[in-house]
Amino acid sequence: MNTRIRRMATIETIYQGGLRTQAKHVYSGNTIITDAPLDNQGKAEAFSPTDLMSASLGSCMFTIMGIAAREHGIDIDGSTCSITKIMAADPRRVSEIQITFNFPEIIYTEKQRAILERSARNCPVAKSLHPDLVQNIVFNFKD
């Protein structure tokens, strides 16, 4: 049984020159500009493609936590995360993504914490990244 979902293109991207691209989300019309980073011949005037990949991991984790939170009546509104991308040289690639989640001044039960952590670690982006890419995830809950 084929479990893959096929869709028409949801993103159209144009190379604008000068190591810059513009990606357009077809359904909403929103656009994202990317630039190469300073350490790879770019201007760093926007997210680099690897920045977006790292941001996608954090956003995906939050989205899946939000779904689980809604289903279990857990409040995570106002939570934040900080993301650090670590590059390797040979070959040039992202070798590690460090994400620190900070939750609001709410006392979560052990069960609620486990639900949130498990949902984050099982988001589609996390499961799509190569296993050699280290995902260092910290969950800061208030005690």
Rank of each mutant, 00 (worst) to 15 (best):
Y27H: 07
S48P: 09
R93Y: 03
T50N: 09
D132R: 10
S59W: 07
I107V: 11
A46L: 13
N2P: 14
S54L: 13
N2M: 11
L129I: 06
P124D: 02
A114F: 11
S119M: 10
D51G: 14
I32W: 11
M8P: 09
G58R: 03
H72L: 03
H130T: 02
N102G: 09
T80Q: 04
K111C: 03
I115C: 05
I137E: 00
S95H: 09
I74H: 01
A9E: 12
I33K: 08
Y15R: 05
M87C: 05
M65H: 01
Q98Y: 04
T21I: 04
A68T: 06
S54E: 09
I115V: 12
T50L: 13
A46I: 11
Q135L: 10
R6E: 13
T21A: 10
T80I: 01
F62L: 15
Q41Y: 10
I107C: 06
P131K: 03
L116W: 03
F47C: 12
H130S: 05
A88R: 10
A69S: 03
A36S: 15
R118V: 08
L116G: 02
I137T: 00
M87L: 12
Y15Q: 06
S79N: 01
Y15S: 10
A23Q: 04
D143P: 10
I106Q: 08
Q41P: 04
T100L: 04
L116K: 03
I86E: 13
E71C: 02
M87H: 12
Y15M: 11
E96H: 04
N40F: 10
E12I: 13
D143K: 06
T63P: 02
I137F: 00
E105L: 11
P37T: 08
D39P: 14
E117S: 12
I32Y: 12
C123H: 01
S82F: 09
F101V: 02
A36N: 08
G29V: 06
D77P: 01
L133M: 05
F141G: 00
K24R: 13
R93Q: 13
T10A: 14
S59I: 07
Q98M: 05
T80P: 02
E117F: 08
A36P: 07
N30D: 13
K127P: 12
R118I: 03
T50S: 14
G66L: 00
Q16C: 11
D143L: 07
A69F: 00
K43M: 12
F141W: 00
N40H: 15
R121N: 15
Y27D: 12
F141T: 00
K85G: 04
T63M: 10
A23R: 04
S95T: 07
I76L: 01
I64F: 10
T13C: 11
M87A: 10
